[in-house]
Design a protein around this nucleic acid. Structure first.
Lengths: 153, 153
DNA sequence: GCCGGACTTGAACCTAGGTTTAGATCTCCC
DNA sequence: GGGAGATCTAAACCTAGGTTCAAGTCCGGC
């Protein structure tokens, strides 16, 4: 038995790029950029305009949340590519990414704290000597390499 | 009474760009870049080559130390411009800059810790909702501005 | 006085994360 | 079916902090 169902009934409404932009606060230009980078996808109309599935809003939220934590787009893309196309990040994935990026944050905090400590020490010494000051010779990676700093940054 | 003093006696030896680069670990290209940006200066020989006073090594150390703390070159330049030309950063200046940049570091650490806390909370919620998730709507600056996120970053 | 290595310049290139612009095309509503 | 506004593309531009290159010049030792 066939039943005629009007378009407006069971079709999940798709979103134009302008609508996605308005709802997410992400400029359309950035959305096109994300698509070029492979982070999001869209269907195209017969006239070549983008149409987004609503779940794409979650992907975009995921991207922005990750960015605020300082994760580069390339890494975000790697994570998103693990998802089947068209699938939004779910709770389980969010938890896994969180665990991973939480470590990222902690590592960065720890690094900054080490820097601050060195800094505080250096206030007292006022040395600014290339050979001895820990601030001028930062980052734990210079122990070998002979005398004098090789890479300051 | 005039006494002839040979060049090699009381003249503070100047350094070529290659020597400064070798001693500081900063590539010559970066030194030229710093000079274009006004962070360092040099005398020129009759043949247009750079010659650096030894105290410039301290300025360069100061620049690199500041950079490792995350201070942008433009700000470093502002600070250095307070010094008379040709004068190296001294202890007093180092202490003042330290006080200022120590606050910078602490502010950045605090921001990251806030982020981490939000992050940890969010692991539990798994919401990823544009309207409610603090990670998707970060940074304390959205309280007004009506519904929906305006700027995510 | 000659030669090789160090030095000079401007311009182009690089990453990251986009924005801006021009000119063409599409979609929707009346 | 017509017009307004939304969308399309490619290419150029932006900041920061430089690097790389090409072509030419200088400097110091023998």
């Amino acid at each position: 038995m066939l039943v005629h169902v009007p378009d407006s009934a069971n079709v999940v409404p798709e979103l134009t790029i302008g609508e996605v932009s308005a709802r997410s606060g992400v400029p359309a230009s950035a959305l096109r950029f994300y698509e070029r980078q492979g982070l999001i996808q869209s269907r195209r109309t017969s006239g070549n305009q983008r149409r987004y599935h609503r779940t794409m809003l979650r992907r975009i939220a995921f991207i922005r949340a990750s960015q605020t934590v300082g994760i580069p787009l390339s890494v975000i893309g790697d994570v998103l590519s693990l998802l089947p196309a068209g699938v939004a990040p779910n709770r389980e994935m969010w938890i896994r990414a969180s665990a991973c990026w939480g470590e990222e944050i902690n590592a960065r905090i720890a690094k900054m704290e080490r820097m601050r400590d060195r800094f505080t020490q250096c206030i007292g010494c006022g040395c600014l000597s290339f050979e001895q000051c820990a601030l001028v010779n930062p980052d734990d990676a210079l122990a070998e390499q002979g005398p004098g700093p090789r890479r300051l940054l």
